[in-house]
Computed example of a mutant assay.
Amino acid sequence: MKKILFLLAILSVGITQANNGKKDRTPEQIASIQSKKMTLVLDLDSKQQSQVEKLLLVEAKDRKSNKMKREDREKLTEEQRFTKSEAALEKKIAMKREMKSILNADQYAKWEKMMAKRSKGKKRGGKHRKGQDEKRGNRN
């Protein structure tokens, strides 16, 4: 019994530290990891990887500086929500244009599919929801 409690304690500490590690990443770390993942998936050359990393770094810094608490978001007026939504869409358009200038046609098509899949996952509730669909056999 003591061994089981000890193992549970170790697991819970490990899980807590792993979750905290994700939240404490700097924009530089986020951009580096994302660019490396994209390099693996899209087969980017070194020049493309550095350009993508710079672009992702700007995006990560912007995201971190604009992060709001849930309570603050709920206090926004309709006009403020509209302005934030419009600004977010402008940033997405700019990102898409930049990626199109960096990637070749095949890479760009693959990147768009990745983004569409990612967006679809967020709309359905993210990874948790996706896992539930797979358990039920509802694969897309």
Rank of each mutant, 00 (worst) to 15 (best):
residue 119 S to I: 00
residue 98 E to M: 03
residue 134 E to V: 13
residue 116 A to W: 00
residue 133 D to E: 10
residue 130 K to Q: 11
residue 116 A to D: 15
residue 7 L to T: 11
residue 100 K to D: 12
residue 42 L to K: 11
residue 136 R to K: 15
residue 84 K to M: 14
residue 117 K to H: 05
residue 86 E to S: 11
residue 57 L to T: 03
residue 46 S to Q: 06
residue 69 K to N: 15
residue 21 G to L: 10
residue 67 K to R: 09
residue 43 D to M: 09
residue 68 M to E: 12
residue 85 S to R: 11
residue 71 E to Y: 01
residue 58 V to M: 06
residue 34 Q to A: 10
residue 138 N to T: 05
residue 16 T to P: 04
residue 126 G to F: 03
residue 44 L to S: 05
residue 61 K to R: 08
residue 109 A to Q: 13
residue 130 K to C: 03
residue 85 S to K: 10
residue 109 A to F: 01
residue 64 K to S: 09
residue 103 L to E: 03
residue 130 K to S: 09
residue 49 Q to E: 14
residue 82 F to P: 12
residue 62 D to L: 05
residue 137 G to R: 02
residue 127 K to Q: 05
residue 17 Q to T: 08
residue 46 S to L: 07
residue 93 I to G: 10
residue 60 A to E: 02
residue 12 S to G: 06
residue 92 K to Y: 03
residue 15 I to S: 07
residue 120 K to R: 09
residue 75 K to V: 11
residue 55 L to Y: 03
residue 118 R to D: 15
residue 87 A to D: 11
residue 104 N to S: 07
residue 121 G to V: 02
residue 25 R to M: 13
residue 24 D to R: 06
residue 92 K to S: 09
residue 33 I to C: 01
residue 138 N to C: 07
residue 118 R to Q: 15
residue 69 K to V: 05
residue 123 K to F: 00
residue 49 Q to I: 05
residue 77 T to V: 08
residue 10 I to E: 01
residue 128 H to T: 12
residue 81 R to T: 08
residue 31 A to C: 06
residue 43 D to S: 15
residue 99 M to W: 02
residue 49 Q to G: 06
residue 116 A to M: 03
residue 54 K to L: 08
residue 58 V to Y: 01
residue 99 M to Q: 03
residue 14 G to V: 01
residue 110 K to M: 11
residue 56 L to A: 11
residue 28 E to A: 10
residue 130 K to M: 10
residue 19 N to K: 14
residue 76 L to A: 09
residue 6 F to E: 15
residue 118 R to T: 14
residue 140 N to S: 06
residue 51 Q to C: 02
residue 24 D to H: 04
residue 99 M to N: 02
residue 14 G to R: 06
residue 9 A to E: 02
residue 88 A to G: 04
residue 57 L to V: 05
residue 36 K to P: 00
residue 83 T to E: 15
residue 5 L to P: 00
residue 73 R to L: 15
residue 17 Q to E: 01
residue 42 L to R: 10
residue 126 G to I: 08
residue 59 E to Q: 15
residue 49 Q to S: 12
residue 67 K to N: 07
residue 129 R to H: 11
residue 40 L to D: 09
residue 100 K to A: 14
residue 97 R to C: 04
residue 29 Q to G: 08
residue 9 A to M: 07
residue 107 Q to T: 08
residue 121 G to N: 13
residue 13 V to I: 13
residue 88 A to P: 05
residue 110 K to C: 04
residue 48 Q to T: 08
residue 12 S to M: 10
residue 31 A to W: 01
residue 35 S to I: 12
residue 41 V to P: 00
residue 1 M to S: 13
residue 135 K to E: 09
residue 67 K to I: 07
residue 120 K to L: 06
residue 49 Q to M: 09
residue 91 K to C: 06
residue 7 L to I: 12
residue 40 L to I: 11
residue 68 M to S: 03
residue 54 K to S: 12
residue 99 M to C: 03
residue 76 L to M: 14
residue 138 N to P: 00
residue 138 N to L: 15
residue 93 I to Y: 06
residue 34 Q to P: 00
residue 13 V to M: 09
residue 60 A to R: 02
residue 81 R to W: 01
residue 71 E to I: 05
residue 75 K to W: 02
residue 82 F to Y: 10
residue 32 S to W: 07
residue 53 E to K: 13
residue 109 A to M: 05
residue 95 M to R: 12
residue 68 M to L: 12
residue 84 K to A: 14
residue 78 E to A: 15
